[in-house]
Design a protein around this nucleic acid. Structure first.
Length: 303
DNA sequence: GCATGTCAAGTTGTG
DNA sequence: CACAACTTGACATGC
């Protein structure tokens, strides 16, 4: 069992910078690339610090922000790493991150944001998504990340048709993307039961988010969902990946979807204990929440 | 300095 | 129909 941290730290002095297209568009090309280069260099240093820090904290996985190299695929402000003045140093830092993670067993993942969809009926949405996925696959290759995790997206009135479009788009993905792509059950539309057929048909591992499952049930128990999802990882001989979180406002009162600062240990599935798997802890208190959960699970006798 | 509005992009459900 | 929610607030602007 390895626990993972998502994107950020609250107490450790590690930050990631970003920028907006609007700000970049106010600049001419050279100062724009200089600004971007400064941000990418900062984020590359922060990523190396991140993997060293999670290792020191006993955390076994780190999710890298989807804004790691911001606005890289924007139609106007888009750029290549080779265009940046700090390119050489950035590449060195990415290689160091890859080495450190490999040598210390830190698992790295990406989770592109909600605009990245392979199921949309709009060709433009799919094309933009594939560009972004290709870009994140390059980052993943550079730092040794084995996962690019997305949701199945919208239903558009017909789930089966939407999944058909997703399957079609998947088959055309560059290999650097398709070998890393995973599908996660979400809290409004696609359940584990919905995703299993397409995951099996295309050998796509299924990231099981137990909080989403609780928000959007499908008749499967947590044990059944865990085992069925495990099958999709066994097919490709990779370690299973799951997500867990607690509702900010508790269960039974108000919207359960927003995430709490810490995980309530009662929300951690008992059937996960002792399994070989990676579990991202989605909690606002970040590394503090992962550390607290580790201590609490340890006291319950995790082996 | 500090408060506040803004930021590329999609889709769904709620009030 | 506006807004929140989603993996995550940081940045730009104006006082």
């Amino acid at each position: 069992m390895r626990l993972g941290l998502c994107c950020l730290f609250v107490e450790e002095n590690i930050s990631f910078r970003t920028t907006t297209a609007k700000a970049l568009l106010n600049l001419t090309v050279k100062p724009r690339l200089e600004k971007i280069s400064g941000i990418c260099l900062h984020n590359s240093k922060s990523l190396l610090e991140s993997v060293k820090t999670v290792h020191r904290l006993g955390i076994g996985a780190f999710r890298i922000s989807s804004q790691f190299f911001p606005r890289m695929t924007h139609p106007v402000t888009g750029y290549r790493l080779e265009d940046l003045p700090d390119c050489e140093q950035i590449n060195d830092l990415l290689a160091s991150t890859k080495n450190f993670s490999k040598n210390n067993g830190i698992r790295l993942s990406f989770h592109p944001d909600q605009f990245i969809l392979l199921s949309s009926p709009r060709a433009e949405v799919t094309e933009n998504s594939i560009r972004e996925l290709s870009c994140q696959a390059d980052w993943a290759e550079a730092v040794g990340a084995d996962l690019i995790n997305i949701h199945a997206g919208g239903v558009y009135g017909d789930k089966a048709q939407a999944l058909e479009r997703l399957s079609g788009a998947f088959k055309d993905l560059p290999e650097k993307v398709s070998t890393r792509l995973t599908l996660e059950n979400d809290d409004v539309s696609y359940t584990v039961r919905d995703l299993l057929p397409v995951c099996h048909a295309l050998s796509i591992p299924l990231v099981y988010d137990v909080h989403h499952h609780r928000c959007n049930p499908d008749g499967l128990t947590e044990l059944e969902a865990t085992d069925l999802a495990a099958g999709t990882w066994a097919t490709v001989k990779r370690e299973q990946y799951c997500h867990v979180s607690s509702p900010k406002n508790g269960w039974g009162q108000g919207n359960p979807k927003p995430h709490a600062d810490f995980l309530d240990p009662k929300d951690f599935p008992v059937c996960w204990l002792g399994r070989e798997m990676t579990v991202d802890v989605e909690a606002k208190a970040k590394e503090l929440a992962v550390a607290r959960l580790m201590a609490e699970l340890g006291q319950q006798g995790v082996r």
